[in-house]
Amino acid sequence: MTLIAPGGHIGILGDGQLGRMMALAAAEMGYFVHIFGQEENSPAAQVSHRSTIADYNDKIALEAFANSVDVVTLEFENIPTDTIMFLNDIVPVRPSRQVLEVTQDRLLEKSFINNLGIGTAPFANVESIGELTHAVQQIGTPAILKTRRLGYDGKGQTKIDHASQIDTAWSEMKNAPSILEGFVNFRLEISVIVARSANGDIQTYVPVENRHKNHILDITLAPANISEPVAKRAEEIAQTIATKIKLIGLLAVEMFVTLEDDVLVNELAPRPHNSGHWTIEACATSQFQQIIRAICGLPLGNPVRHSNATMINLIGTDIDQWSDIIDDSKNSFHLYGKAESRAGRKMGHVTKLLPLDEKPEI
Protein backbone atom coordinates (compact mmCIF):
# COMPACT_ATOMS: atom_id res chain seq x y z
CA MET A 1 0.00 0.00 0.00
CA THR A 2 1.39 3.38 -1.05
CA LEU A 3 1.74 5.91 1.75
CA ILE A 4 -0.32 9.06 1.25
CA ALA A 5 1.61 11.74 3.10
CA PRO A 6 0.19 14.90 4.63
CA GLY A 7 -0.50 17.35 1.82
CA GLY A 8 -2.38 14.63 -0.06
CA HIS A 9 -6.03 14.77 -1.07
CA ILE A 10 -8.74 12.60 0.48
CA GLY A 11 -12.14 12.06 -1.09
CA ILE A 12 -15.14 11.38 1.15
CA LEU A 13 -18.42 9.97 -0.16
CA GLY A 14 -21.20 11.52 1.91
CA ASP A 15 -21.62 15.01 3.30
CA GLY A 16 -23.14 14.68 6.78
CA GLN A 17 -21.74 15.14 10.26
CA LEU A 18 -19.44 12.12 10.10
CA GLY A 19 -17.88 13.51 6.94
CA ARG A 20 -17.58 16.86 8.69
CA MET A 21 -15.63 15.43 11.62
CA MET A 22 -13.48 13.32 9.29
CA ALA A 23 -12.66 16.42 7.25
CA LEU A 24 -11.74 18.39 10.37
CA ALA A 25 -9.44 15.59 11.56
CA ALA A 26 -7.85 15.31 8.11
CA ALA A 27 -7.21 19.06 7.98
CA GLU A 28 -5.52 18.94 11.39
CA MET A 29 -3.22 16.26 9.98
CA GLY A 30 -2.35 18.34 6.91
CA TYR A 31 -4.63 16.76 4.30
CA PHE A 32 -7.04 18.38 1.83
CA VAL A 33 -10.56 16.94 1.65
CA HIS A 34 -12.93 16.77 -1.32
CA ILE A 35 -16.53 15.94 -0.39
CA PHE A 36 -18.86 14.16 -2.82
CA GLY A 37 -22.48 14.56 -1.70
CA GLN A 38 -25.94 15.64 -2.69
CA GLU A 39 -26.75 18.59 -0.44
CA GLU A 40 -26.06 22.30 -0.77
CA ASN A 41 -24.15 23.81 2.17
CA SER A 42 -23.80 20.40 3.78
CA PRO A 43 -22.16 19.87 7.19
CA ALA A 44 -19.08 18.28 5.60
CA ALA A 45 -18.75 20.73 2.71
CA GLN A 46 -18.74 23.67 5.11
CA VAL A 47 -15.33 22.62 6.47
CA SER A 48 -13.73 21.00 3.40
CA HIS A 49 -11.32 22.16 0.71
CA ARG A 50 -13.64 21.19 -2.15
CA SER A 51 -17.09 19.70 -2.66
CA THR A 52 -19.01 18.16 -5.52
CA ILE A 53 -22.80 17.95 -5.54
CA ALA A 54 -23.93 15.16 -7.83
CA ASP A 55 -25.74 11.83 -7.92
CA TYR A 56 -23.76 8.76 -6.87
CA ASN A 57 -24.41 7.33 -10.34
CA ASP A 58 -23.09 10.39 -12.23
CA LYS A 59 -20.00 8.88 -13.84
CA ILE A 60 -18.72 12.16 -15.25
CA ALA A 61 -18.78 13.77 -11.80
CA LEU A 62 -17.39 10.62 -10.19
CA GLU A 63 -14.48 10.47 -12.64
CA ALA A 64 -13.57 14.10 -12.00
CA PHE A 65 -13.82 13.51 -8.26
CA ALA A 66 -11.62 10.41 -8.41
CA ASN A 67 -8.98 12.17 -10.47
CA SER A 68 -8.77 14.98 -7.90
CA VAL A 69 -7.88 12.79 -4.88
CA ASP A 70 -5.35 10.17 -3.77
CA VAL A 71 -7.76 7.91 -1.87
CA VAL A 72 -11.53 7.67 -1.34
CA THR A 73 -13.39 6.69 1.81
CA LEU A 74 -17.00 7.06 2.98
CA GLU A 75 -19.06 8.38 5.85
CA PHE A 76 -22.02 6.05 5.42
CA GLU A 77 -22.31 2.56 4.00
CA ASN A 78 -25.33 2.90 1.72
CA ILE A 79 -23.30 3.95 -1.32
CA PRO A 80 -24.07 1.94 -4.48
CA THR A 81 -21.41 -0.75 -4.86
CA ASP A 82 -21.27 0.03 -8.60
CA THR A 83 -20.11 3.50 -7.61
CA ILE A 84 -17.33 2.03 -5.48
CA MET A 85 -16.27 -0.31 -8.28
CA PHE A 86 -16.19 2.57 -10.80
CA LEU A 87 -14.09 4.77 -8.50
CA ASN A 88 -11.72 1.96 -7.58
CA ASP A 89 -10.65 1.63 -11.22
CA ILE A 90 -9.23 5.15 -10.90
CA VAL A 91 -8.23 5.59 -7.25
CA PRO A 92 -8.08 3.31 -4.17
CA VAL A 93 -11.35 3.11 -2.23
CA ARG A 94 -11.11 2.11 1.43
CA PRO A 95 -13.08 0.22 2.70
CA SER A 96 -13.57 -1.97 -0.35
CA ARG A 97 -16.65 -2.86 -2.36
CA GLN A 98 -16.53 -6.35 -0.83
CA VAL A 99 -16.86 -4.90 2.67
CA LEU A 100 -19.89 -2.86 1.61
CA GLU A 101 -21.54 -5.82 -0.10
CA VAL A 102 -21.59 -7.61 3.24
CA THR A 103 -22.50 -4.70 5.51
CA GLN A 104 -25.23 -3.27 3.27
CA ASP A 105 -27.31 -6.45 3.47
CA ARG A 106 -28.47 -7.68 6.88
CA LEU A 107 -28.81 -11.28 5.67
CA LEU A 108 -25.28 -11.40 4.23
CA GLU A 109 -23.93 -9.58 7.28
CA LYS A 110 -25.42 -11.94 9.87
CA SER A 111 -24.55 -15.00 7.80
CA PHE A 112 -20.95 -13.78 7.52
CA ILE A 113 -20.76 -13.25 11.29
CA ASN A 114 -22.27 -16.66 12.10
CA ASN A 115 -19.85 -18.35 9.70
CA LEU A 116 -17.02 -16.97 11.85
CA GLY A 117 -18.48 -18.77 14.85
CA ILE A 118 -19.76 -15.50 16.35
CA GLY A 119 -23.29 -15.33 17.73
CA THR A 120 -26.17 -13.12 16.66
CA ALA A 121 -29.87 -13.06 17.38
CA PRO A 122 -31.69 -15.91 15.58
CA PHE A 123 -32.81 -14.78 12.15
CA ALA A 124 -34.52 -15.91 8.96
CA ASN A 125 -34.68 -14.58 5.42
CA VAL A 126 -38.12 -13.27 4.46
CA GLU A 127 -39.21 -12.49 0.91
CA SER A 128 -42.95 -13.18 1.06
CA ILE A 129 -45.85 -13.24 3.47
CA GLY A 130 -45.63 -17.03 3.48
CA GLU A 131 -41.96 -16.97 4.44
CA LEU A 132 -42.72 -14.44 7.18
CA THR A 133 -45.46 -16.69 8.59
CA HIS A 134 -43.05 -19.63 8.62
CA ALA A 135 -40.27 -17.52 10.18
CA VAL A 136 -42.54 -16.35 13.01
CA GLN A 137 -43.52 -19.97 13.70
CA GLN A 138 -39.83 -20.93 13.73
CA ILE A 139 -38.37 -18.00 15.73
CA GLY A 140 -41.37 -17.02 17.83
CA THR A 141 -42.47 -13.65 19.15
CA PRO A 142 -41.62 -10.98 20.03
CA ALA A 143 -39.46 -10.51 16.94
CA ILE A 144 -38.26 -7.65 14.73
CA LEU A 145 -38.88 -7.55 10.98
CA LYS A 146 -36.22 -5.48 9.21
CA THR A 147 -35.56 -4.67 5.58
CA ARG A 148 -32.34 -6.30 4.43
CA ARG A 149 -31.03 -3.02 3.02
CA LEU A 150 -31.06 0.74 3.71
CA GLY A 151 -32.36 0.68 7.28
CA TYR A 152 -30.92 2.87 10.07
CA ASP A 153 -32.01 4.65 13.28
CA GLY A 154 -35.13 2.48 13.48
CA LYS A 155 -36.17 3.05 9.87
CA GLY A 156 -37.20 0.02 7.84
CA GLN A 157 -38.21 -2.14 10.79
CA THR A 158 -41.25 -3.09 12.82
CA LYS A 159 -41.87 -5.22 15.89
CA ILE A 160 -44.11 -8.29 15.82
CA ASP A 161 -45.54 -9.17 19.22
CA HIS A 162 -48.22 -11.58 18.02
CA ALA A 163 -48.81 -13.71 14.94
CA SER A 164 -51.92 -11.61 14.27
CA GLN A 165 -49.61 -8.73 13.28
CA ILE A 166 -47.90 -10.59 10.43
CA ASP A 167 -50.02 -9.12 7.61
CA THR A 168 -49.62 -5.56 8.89
CA ALA A 169 -45.88 -5.98 9.41
CA TRP A 170 -45.31 -7.32 5.91
CA SER A 171 -47.38 -4.49 4.46
CA GLU A 172 -45.12 -1.98 6.26
CA MET A 173 -42.09 -3.54 4.54
CA LYS A 174 -43.76 -2.95 1.15
CA ASN A 175 -42.64 -6.39 -0.08
CA ALA A 176 -38.95 -5.46 0.36
CA PRO A 177 -36.60 -8.42 1.01
CA SER A 178 -36.29 -8.58 4.79
CA ILE A 179 -35.09 -10.62 7.73
CA LEU A 180 -36.93 -11.60 10.88
CA GLU A 181 -34.78 -11.37 14.01
CA GLY A 182 -35.61 -13.04 17.27
CA PHE A 183 -35.84 -10.80 20.31
CA VAL A 184 -32.71 -10.76 22.50
CA ASN A 185 -33.21 -10.33 26.24
CA PHE A 186 -30.09 -8.23 26.78
CA ARG A 187 -28.61 -6.51 29.81
CA LEU A 188 -27.12 -3.66 27.80
CA GLU A 189 -26.07 -2.64 24.31
CA ILE A 190 -22.39 -2.00 23.62
CA SER A 191 -20.18 -1.20 20.67
CA VAL A 192 -16.51 -1.59 19.83
CA ILE A 193 -14.79 0.51 17.19
CA VAL A 194 -11.85 -1.22 15.54
CA ALA A 195 -9.32 0.15 13.05
CA ARG A 196 -7.30 -1.99 10.66
CA SER A 197 -4.54 -0.92 8.29
CA ALA A 198 -3.53 -2.53 5.00
CA ASN A 199 -0.65 -4.37 6.66
CA GLY A 200 -3.03 -5.98 9.16
CA ASP A 201 -2.27 -3.81 12.18
CA ILE A 202 -5.32 -3.51 14.43
CA GLN A 203 -6.31 -1.13 17.21
CA THR A 204 -9.56 -1.18 19.16
CA TYR A 205 -11.28 1.37 21.37
CA VAL A 206 -12.68 0.30 24.71
CA PRO A 207 -16.23 -1.14 24.61
CA VAL A 208 -18.85 1.51 25.39
CA GLU A 209 -22.45 1.31 26.52
CA ASN A 210 -25.10 2.76 24.21
CA ARG A 211 -28.54 3.86 25.31
CA HIS A 212 -31.18 4.59 22.70
CA LYS A 213 -34.32 6.71 22.59
CA ASN A 214 -36.87 6.14 19.80
CA HIS A 215 -34.35 3.84 18.06
CA ILE A 216 -31.73 6.64 17.89
CA LEU A 217 -28.55 6.68 19.96
CA ASP A 218 -29.11 9.01 22.90
CA ILE A 219 -26.20 8.47 25.30
CA THR A 220 -22.84 6.70 25.16
CA LEU A 221 -20.95 5.82 28.35
CA ALA A 222 -17.24 5.11 28.02
CA PRO A 223 -16.28 2.59 29.20
CA ALA A 224 -19.22 0.20 29.40
CA ASN A 225 -20.01 -1.23 32.83
CA ILE A 226 -19.01 -4.80 31.97
CA SER A 227 -16.52 -7.27 33.37
CA GLU A 228 -13.01 -7.57 31.98
CA PRO A 229 -13.72 -11.00 30.36
CA VAL A 230 -16.82 -9.61 28.60
CA ALA A 231 -14.87 -6.55 27.39
CA LYS A 232 -12.05 -8.79 26.14
CA ARG A 233 -14.53 -11.01 24.29
CA ALA A 234 -16.17 -7.97 22.64
CA GLU A 235 -12.81 -6.63 21.46
CA GLU A 236 -11.79 -10.06 20.14
CA ILE A 237 -15.04 -10.28 18.17
CA ALA A 238 -14.45 -6.86 16.60
CA GLN A 239 -10.85 -7.75 15.71
CA THR A 240 -11.87 -11.07 14.17
CA ILE A 241 -14.56 -9.49 12.01
CA ALA A 242 -12.23 -6.69 10.85
CA THR A 243 -9.56 -9.22 9.89
CA LYS A 244 -11.83 -11.70 8.13
CA ILE A 245 -13.67 -9.01 6.17
CA LYS A 246 -10.26 -7.59 5.13
CA LEU A 247 -11.07 -4.12 6.38
CA ILE A 248 -8.91 -1.11 5.60
CA GLY A 249 -10.37 1.69 7.65
CA LEU A 250 -12.73 1.73 10.60
CA LEU A 251 -15.51 -0.63 11.67
CA ALA A 252 -18.09 -0.17 14.43
CA VAL A 253 -19.44 -3.44 15.81
CA GLU A 254 -22.71 -3.06 17.73
CA MET A 255 -23.40 -5.86 20.20
CA PHE A 256 -25.77 -7.10 22.88
CA VAL A 257 -24.57 -8.30 26.29
CA THR A 258 -27.11 -10.86 27.50
CA LEU A 259 -28.20 -11.53 31.06
CA GLU A 260 -25.77 -14.47 31.02
CA ASP A 261 -22.92 -12.19 29.82
CA ASP A 262 -22.85 -13.70 26.34
CA VAL A 263 -21.87 -11.24 23.60
CA LEU A 264 -23.98 -11.24 20.41
CA VAL A 265 -23.33 -9.05 17.37
CA ASN A 266 -26.20 -6.86 16.23
CA GLU A 267 -24.90 -4.71 13.35
CA LEU A 268 -21.73 -3.58 11.56
CA ALA A 269 -20.91 -0.10 10.26
CA PRO A 270 -17.70 0.24 8.18
CA ARG A 271 -17.08 3.90 9.05
CA PRO A 272 -16.84 6.24 12.03
CA HIS A 273 -19.77 5.78 14.37
CA ASN A 274 -21.95 7.94 16.60
CA SER A 275 -20.87 5.88 19.61
CA GLY A 276 -17.25 6.90 19.00
CA HIS A 277 -17.66 10.68 19.19
CA TRP A 278 -16.35 10.69 22.77
CA THR A 279 -12.90 9.70 21.44
CA ILE A 280 -12.36 13.25 20.13
CA GLU A 281 -11.76 14.54 23.66
CA ALA A 282 -10.99 11.38 25.63
CA CYS A 283 -8.35 9.55 23.55
CA ALA A 284 -4.88 10.30 22.24
CA THR A 285 -6.19 9.40 18.77
CA SER A 286 -9.85 9.98 17.93
CA GLN A 287 -11.84 7.65 15.70
CA PHE A 288 -11.74 10.35 13.02
CA GLN A 289 -7.96 10.68 13.12
CA GLN A 290 -7.70 6.89 13.15
CA ILE A 291 -9.62 6.38 9.92
CA ILE A 292 -7.46 8.98 8.18
CA ARG A 293 -4.36 7.13 9.38
CA ALA A 294 -5.72 3.77 8.21
CA ILE A 295 -6.77 4.80 4.71
CA CYS A 296 -3.58 6.82 4.09
CA GLY A 297 -1.20 4.04 5.15
CA LEU A 298 0.06 5.81 8.26
CA PRO A 299 0.78 3.89 11.47
CA LEU A 300 -2.36 3.52 13.53
CA GLY A 301 -2.62 5.84 16.52
CA ASN A 302 -2.99 5.03 20.20
CA PRO A 303 -6.68 4.43 21.03
CA VAL A 304 -6.19 4.25 24.80
CA ARG A 305 -8.35 6.75 26.66
CA HIS A 306 -6.90 9.23 29.15
CA SER A 307 -10.38 9.94 30.58
CA ASN A 308 -13.75 8.30 30.96
CA ALA A 309 -16.56 10.07 29.16
CA THR A 310 -20.28 10.58 28.75
CA MET A 311 -21.50 11.58 25.28
CA ILE A 312 -25.03 12.88 24.72
CA ASN A 313 -26.58 13.38 21.30
CA LEU A 314 -28.44 16.61 20.61
CA ILE A 315 -31.46 15.51 18.60
CA GLY A 316 -34.08 17.83 17.13
CA THR A 317 -35.00 20.64 19.49
CA ASP A 318 -32.35 19.56 22.03
CA ILE A 319 -30.18 22.05 20.19
CA ASP A 320 -32.25 24.89 21.63
CA GLN A 321 -30.44 24.27 24.94
CA TRP A 322 -27.09 25.30 23.44
CA SER A 323 -26.56 28.31 25.70
CA ASP A 324 -27.06 26.25 28.88
CA ILE A 325 -24.71 23.58 27.53
CA ILE A 326 -21.98 26.13 26.78
CA ASP A 327 -22.37 27.66 30.25
CA ASP A 328 -21.03 24.42 31.76
CA SER A 329 -17.26 24.57 31.30
CA LYS A 330 -17.02 20.77 31.66
CA ASN A 331 -18.93 20.26 28.40
CA SER A 332 -17.27 19.87 25.01
CA PHE A 333 -19.89 21.14 22.56
CA HIS A 334 -20.13 20.10 18.91
CA LEU A 335 -22.62 21.48 16.37
CA TYR A 336 -22.96 19.99 12.89
CA GLY A 337 -23.88 23.09 10.89
CA LYS A 338 -27.42 21.96 10.06
CA ALA A 339 -29.70 24.91 9.43
CA GLU A 340 -32.97 23.27 10.44
CA SER A 341 -33.78 21.09 13.44
CA ARG A 342 -36.30 18.30 12.89
CA ALA A 343 -37.61 15.51 15.06
CA GLY A 344 -35.06 12.70 15.04
CA ARG A 345 -32.37 14.77 13.32
CA LYS A 346 -28.90 14.70 14.89
CA MET A 347 -27.90 18.34 15.34
CA GLY A 348 -24.81 17.96 17.50
CA HIS A 349 -23.40 16.27 20.57
CA VAL A 350 -21.91 17.03 23.97
CA THR A 351 -19.07 15.18 25.67
CA LYS A 352 -18.21 15.42 29.36
CA LEU A 353 -14.88 13.99 30.55
CA LEU A 354 -14.42 12.20 33.86
CA PRO A 355 -11.39 10.86 35.73
CA LEU A 356 -10.49 7.23 34.93
CA ASP A 357 -11.54 6.19 38.41
CA GLU A 358 -14.99 7.76 38.11
CA LYS A 359 -17.84 5.78 36.59
CA PRO A 360 -19.53 7.54 33.65
CA GLU A 361 -23.24 8.09 34.15
CA ILE A 362 -25.98 10.65 33.58
Results as ranks from 00 to 15, higher is better:
N41Q: 14
N125S: 15
T285R: 01
P355F: 00
N114V: 04
D58T: 11
T240K: 14
F86E: 01
G276T: 06
P6M: 07
A195V: 03
L268G: 04
V72T: 05
G337Q: 05
D105E: 10
E209S: 13
V208K: 10
R271A: 13
P303T: 15
K244V: 00
L107Y: 15
G276V: 00
I113M: 03
D89C: 06
G316L: 12
E358C: 13
V263C: 10
A135P: 12
E340G: 05
V47Q: 12
I216N: 11
L354N: 04
V102C: 01
D262P: 02
I362D: 06
G276I: 00
E109Q: 14
D15T: 08
E281W: 06
A44N: 09
G19L: 03
N199M: 00
A25T: 10
P207M: 00
K359M: 14
N88D: 14
A343T: 14
S51C: 13
M173W: 03
N302L: 02
T351D: 05
A284L: 08
I4D: 01
I190R: 07
I190Y: 04
A234T: 06
M21N: 07
G8I: 06
G200N: 10
H34E: 11
I53Q: 12
I139H: 11
V72R: 01
P95T: 06
F186G: 06
L62Q: 05
G348C: 03
G19R: 02
D318K: 12
S341C: 09
N210C: 11
E260M: 12
I190C: 06
N274M: 05
D89T: 10
D262F: 05
I362T: 09
L188K: 15
A45R: 09
V126L: 13
L300V: 02
T158V: 15
G316E: 11
E340V: 15
L18G: 03
G16R: 05
D261Y: 09
Q137V: 08
A66C: 12
V206G: 00
E101N: 11
I292T: 12
L259D: 14
M21E: 08
N214Y: 11
I237N: 02
D58G: 07
I216A: 10
V71F: 04
M311Y: 10
C283H: 02
P360D: 08
Y336H: 06
R233Y: 00
A64R: 12
N67D: 11
L116W: 02
N313G: 09
S178N: 10
D327Q: 11
L74C: 03
K346F: 01
R94A: 05
I179P: 03
E181N: 10
E260H: 13
D70A: 03
E181C: 08
S332V: 02
V136L: 09
L24S: 12
E77H: 07
T220L: 09
E254G: 06
A339W: 03
I315V: 15
N266P: 03
L108S: 01
D327I: 06
T220E: 06
K146F: 01
P92F: 07
I312P: 00
D153E: 12
A339K: 13
N266F: 04
I179V: 15
S329C: 04
P43T: 04
N78R: 09
A23G: 13
K159T: 15
N88H: 09
E181A: 08
T120S: 13
M347Y: 09
Y56N: 10
D153K: 09
E77I: 10
E127G: 15
P95N: 10
